[in-house]
Simulated scan of single mutants.
Amino acid sequence: MSSSLVSMAIDDSEDVLVDGLARSAFQIMGVLTRLGAEHDLSLTQLRVLGILRDRRPRMSDLAAFLGLDKSTLSGLVDRAVRRGLMTRAPNPTDKRAVDVLITDAGRELAEQMFEEFRAALAPATGRLDEAQRRQLAELLEPVLTPPLPLV
């Protein structure tokens, strides 16, 4: 195979991959947008709840990770605090820093939404057998870790 054909094949396979990732992202974002709207949550609030399920980040770290300025994140957290989904607490090692924590109500909502999300994706994920689901998850891991920088 000539080098131009190899190059074209590589470009085609990358185009197919990028197209597949984009189409799956749009499909997933559509489901998340619908679920968020049903629970009066924005996509960013959904992301924060998902992050807080197993972490206790500083406000500044969470803002940086989400690509938000601190005042925007502060407003988002304020609204979630009023709903009883999150709370703030002093960082145990840096008294100047503030951590964001999920409350029991927030954790319950996050778990409920995860189950609804799983159910909404079931028609697509159900087309794969267990080995294929595991393989797809393994293939996605190096693509998703670390997260892409926000542009």
Rank of each mutant, 00 (worst) to 15 (best):
L136Q: 07
V31E: 09
R23H: 11
D19L: 14
D40T: 06
M113N: 05
T125D: 06
P92Y: 02
H39W: 05
R88T: 09
P147S: 05
D19N: 15
L73V: 09
E130G: 09
M29F: 13
S24C: 12
M8S: 14
L35C: 04
I28N: 08
A89K: 10
T103Q: 04
L85R: 00
E116G: 03
R34F: 05
G30V: 01
T44A: 07
P123E: 06
R107T: 03
T125V: 11
G84S: 08
V81D: 10
A63N: 00
T87F: 08
I10Q: 10
E116T: 02
D40W: 02
D78T: 13
T44C: 07
I28A: 09
P123Q: 03
L121D: 03
L101T: 04
S7Y: 10
L68F: 06
T125W: 06
R82K: 15
P142G: 01
S13P: 05
K95H: 12
M1G: 15
L49S: 01
E111M: 07
L21H: 07
D15S: 13
A89R: 12
H39M: 04
G106N: 02
M29W: 11
Q45P: 03
D69N: 14
A119T: 15
L32G: 01
E141F: 12
G126V: 08
V81F: 01
S60C: 11
Q135S: 13
V6I: 15
D78Y: 10
R134T: 15
V77Q: 05
L109P: 07
A80E: 06
S42L: 05
V48G: 02
L21V: 09
I102C: 03
I51C: 00
L85M: 05
S42E: 01
A89H: 07
V48W: 00
S13Y: 11
L21T: 03
R134V: 14
L76T: 09
P92H: 01
R58E: 10
A25D: 14
D40I: 00
P57S: 08
L17H: 08
I28H: 04
R127E: 15
P57R: 11
R88E: 09
G20S: 11
K95R: 13
T44R: 07
D69F: 02
D94H: 13
M1W: 11
N91F: 10
V81E: 12
V98Y: 04
T103Y: 01
V98F: 06
K95V: 12
S3P: 08
E116C: 05
V100S: 00
G20W: 03
L32H: 04
V31G: 07
V6R: 15
S7W: 10
S74L: 10
A89G: 08
D61Q: 10
E108Y: 09
E141N: 11
S7Q: 13
E130D: 14
E138H: 12
A37K: 13
F26I: 07
D129H: 12
P92N: 00
A105D: 15
L46T: 10
E111V: 09
L66H: 06
A22N: 11
S42V: 03
E108C: 04
A122P: 03
P123Y: 04
R127M: 14
D69T: 00
G67K: 07
P142L: 00
Q45W: 01
R118N: 11
I51F: 09
L17M: 13
G84N: 08
D54M: 13
P147N: 06
G75I: 01
T72H: 11
G20L: 08
R107G: 09
T145G: 05
V98N: 09
L62H: 00
